[in-house]
Structure formats: structure tokens, C-alpha cells
């Protein structure tokens, strides 16, 4: 037994090194005066300075946040409805409904981007923030509903029966019992939706219009034409923000666990 654990331990360590090595090198390079970082040519904050003074970063970040938040909220509502409908009603329509959600999860980004672009052109909708928002909601719904559905499967519907017997009406049941109990699922789904939206490049690339670039679109153009050192600095900021968010959310969750 020991031997096998040894093997899997080394693989796990190797995997973690594989995951983090690029990030470590990127962080070191973001303070390096040389562009590609073959050798250390002195500590600098120049790349960070260049980064903050770039007005397009802030502009595209704002676009990403606007779309991320609105797509998150919309898909949380619609995805929860979908999960509830699929779980609660066992009609033929729901089989079709579930099949549609599964297929959506299975279709690669590039296909969705492509077909949505053709669709928006066909209905003469101008490409811009609205089209990006529609596209993001479309791919987020399935993820949210899958997460909420997972939560619903562990939900004891007898509680609702009991509440009904005790005279609670539809509003009270939804508001006071149903939503609080499945809200962790809805929040987890929403966070997933937000991350997916902020991170999406491929679908956005197809349905974006002039002036509606998101941060990933701008990063892509920087990768193709801009300075690699500035991107290093941006990546480090990304890492710092991510780690801070995760740390904070862990902190928020932790006290509840011990309760």
C-alpha cells in the first residue's frame, strides 16, 4: 500500500509544480527589466506603471464587470427556474428541457460563438454589449441549473409538504423555506457563471462589436501585438486578486463550518 501511495504522492506533487511553475516565472519576470527574462537585468516597477496608465485596461475591465454581473444575475434566476422545473415536473417537456441543457454543455465555445454570430446577423441585432450579454447568459444558464439541480437532489420535499399542512402559502414557502435552503447552490452557480463570463474569450470574440471589447479580448490583442512584460504584470495582478478573493471567501465560509 505504501508503495502505491508513494507513486501517487509524487505524481500529485509533480502536478502541483506543473501548475504553479509558469505562474512563479511570470511573477518574477513582471519585476524584471529585461523583456523576455533570460537573465535578471534589475528590479523594476515600470511594467506595472505602464499597466496602470493604460486607459484601455480600465475601460475593458469595466465592460467585463458589467457583462459578468448582469449575466450572473440573469442566469442565476433563469438557471434556478430551469433546475426547479426539471426536478419538480416529470413531463415530456422537461425531458426536452434537460436534453437542451445537456447539449448546450456539450457544444464547444467556437460553435456557440459561430452560430450566435450568424443568428445576430440574421435578426439584424447590432453587435455590442447586448449581444455579448445574451451570449454569456446562454452559456451560463446550463451551468447554474446543473449546480442547483445537484442541490435539489438532496433537498427533502417533505419539508414543503409539512409547511403546506401548517398553512403556509406559496409565497411564504418559496421565500422562507425553499430559497434559503437551496441558496448555497444558487450562489455557487452564480459564482461559476461570473467566473465563466469574466474568463470567456472565444464566444465573446465572435459576438463583440466596435467599442465593446472585454478584458480577455484586449488581453488577446496585447498577446498578439503588445509588450509581453506588461502582460506579466497584468497576470500577477490577476493572481493577486484571485487569491485574495478565495482567501476572503474561505474566511467567510469557515466560521459556518465550525458551527
Amino acid at each position: 500500500m505504501k508503495c502505491r501511495n508513494g507513486f501517487s504522492k509524487y505524481i500529485t506533487i509533480a502536478v502541483l509544480i506543473f501548475f504553479y511553475l509558469p505562474m512563479v516565472i511570470m511573477t518574477i519576470n513582471s519585476f524584471n527589466n529585461s523583456r523576455y527574462g533570460v537573465e535578471w537585468s534589475g528590479f523594476t516597477l515600470a511594467w506595472y506603471k505602464q499597466l496602470i496608465t493604460d486607459p484601455k485596461i480600465l475601460y475593458t475591465l469595466m465592460n467585463s464587470l458589467i457583462i459578468g454581473i448582469s449575466a450572473m444575475v440573469t442566469s442565476m434566476v433563469i438557471g434556478t427556474l430551469a433546475a426547479f422545473a426539471i426536478h419538480h415536473y416529470k413531463s415530456r417537456i422537461q425531458i426536452f428541457h434537460q436534453a437542451l441543457i445537456f447539449t448546450q454543455l456539450g457544444v464547444p465555445d467556437i460553435l456557440m460563438g459561430m452560430s450566435l454570430l450568424l443568428f445576430f446577423i440574421a435578426i439584424h441585432l447590432r453587435l455590442g454589449l447586448i449581444t455579448i450579454y445574451i451570449a454569456h447568459v446562454t452559456f451560463c444558464i446550463s451551468y447554474v441549473s446543473m449546480v442547483v439541480l445537484g442541490r435539489l437532489q438532496n433537498f427533502d420535499f417533505k419539508i414543503i409538504e409539512a409547511a403546506k399542512d401548517l398553512g403556509a402559502d406559496w409565497y411564504v414557502i418559496t421565500r422562507r423555506i425553499f430559497l434559503p435552503l437551496i441558496s448555497p447552490g444558487i450562489i455557487a452557480g452564480g459564482l461559476l457563471a461570473f467566473t465563466l463570463s469574466i474568463d470567456d474569450f472565444v464566444i465573446t470574440f465572435f459576438v463583440t462589436g466596435p467599442g465593446s471589447s472585454t478584458l480577455p479580448i484586449y488581453i488577446y490583442s496585447m498577446m498578439k501585438h503588445g509588450s509581453p512584460a506588461v502582460l506579466n504584470a497584468l497576470s500577477v495582478l490577476f493572481l493577486v486578486v484571485t487569491f485574495t478573493l478565495v482567501y476572503c471567501s474561505q474566511r467567510l465560509i469557515a466560521p459556518k463550518k465550525t458551527r
Binding site: 516565472i25 519576470n29 523576455y36 527574462g37 497576470s235 490577476f238
Partner: peptide, 27 residues
């Protein structure tokens, strides 16, 4: 957490990191 966290950073940036590492002038 260690496995999930790096993958909350941008997808493009993760690819970019490899572009830097594998660069002909890279480390």
C-alpha cells in the same frame, strides 16, 4: 484549493505563461 485557484485566473494568461517559458529567448 491549490488545484482550483490558478484556474480562476484568465484562460489566455495561462496560455501566455507558456509562451513566455517556451520562448526562444526564455529561461
Amino acid at each position: 484549493l491549490l488545484i482550483i485557484v490558478p484556474f480562476w485566473t484568465n484562460f489566455l494568461i495561462r496560455i501566455f505563461a507558456w509562451k513566455i517559458i517556451l520562448n526562444p529567448e526564455g529561461i
